[in-house]
Amino acid sequence: MRHTGAEHRSHPGRGDRGILADVLSLTMNDAAVQALGLLTVPQAAHPPGGLAPDLEAVAARGITRRGDVLVWADSVGNAEGAPSIFRDLTGWECSDSSFHLEDCVPVPVAVVDDAPVIAEEDQRTLLRHGLAFALMFSRLVYDLEQPSAVRCIIGVNDTNGTFRFHQIRNGESWHYPDLERYRDKMIVVDIKPSSPGPLPE
């Protein structure tokens, strides 16, 4: 089952954009919904104590456009060489923007047989922070001089949690649209400003 939600916001003072509705849509698979307890306690999605300071620091890096790709402002990726070894620009952006949530959120990570293991409750913590971070990240997208539609992908399992983003392009996708194909707990957030620039080809 796919669970979706949408938030519509207007931005007065941005010329014609002020009378249009920006859209932020959220999709997650059953595993993520059950882990967060959204159907019984909606506020459970919020991280207790607020967003982890290290995630706030990641957001403070900002994002910028370099040629055809969108990157963290301090990215050392070779944007001019994109997509390089990747199939397309979407794959390049996902690789360049990806980071591990457990590196920023203080959760215990055990090591069993030389492999990391994250308990179910701590996976829930990573999901909460990942979702809260995606909502904070959306402000960076809206603040771009030429906003474009951007997708954030959060995946959490018993070994790690990841966050990545890419511009939404026609004919390109990093993830399977049917999130139930994943064993991971998956959340996808689409940020669609009301008057974005043209969709990347």
Rank of each mutant, 00 (worst) to 15 (best):
R66C: 05
R181M: 11
L24P: 01
G15M: 04
Q167T: 14
L89Y: 13
L24Y: 04
D16E: 10
D158K: 11
G5H: 07
A82G: 08
L126S: 05
Q146F: 08
L144I: 03
Q146K: 13
M136F: 00
T4G: 14
L36Y: 00
S25G: 02
Y182G: 07
G91E: 11
E93T: 06
S95G: 06
G18H: 08
W174E: 10
R151M: 05
D143Q: 15
S138P: 06
A32E: 05
S97Y: 11
V109L: 02
R14P: 01
M136W: 02
D22T: 07
D113G: 03
W72M: 12
D54E: 15
T125K: 10
G67H: 10
V69F: 12
P193Y: 05
A59K: 13
R65Y: 01
Q34Y: 02
E120K: 09
P198W: 04
W92D: 03
N160P: 00
L55E: 04
V117M: 08
R124N: 01
Q167D: 05
L179Y: 07
S173V: 13
L101K: 04
V76M: 06
M136T: 12
D54R: 15
S75W: 11
P42W: 12
R14D: 01
G15S: 03
S84K: 10
R181T: 09
Q34D: 14
A32P: 09
S10Q: 15
I168T: 14
R181F: 05
V111G: 00
A134V: 01
R181I: 06
D113C: 04
G130E: 00
H166S: 15
L144Q: 15
H46E: 10
V71R: 13
L140R: 01
T159C: 12
P193Q: 05
Q123K: 09
Q34R: 15
D114S: 13
L89A: 11
Y176H: 13
Y182S: 10
S25A: 06
V117K: 06
S194M: 01
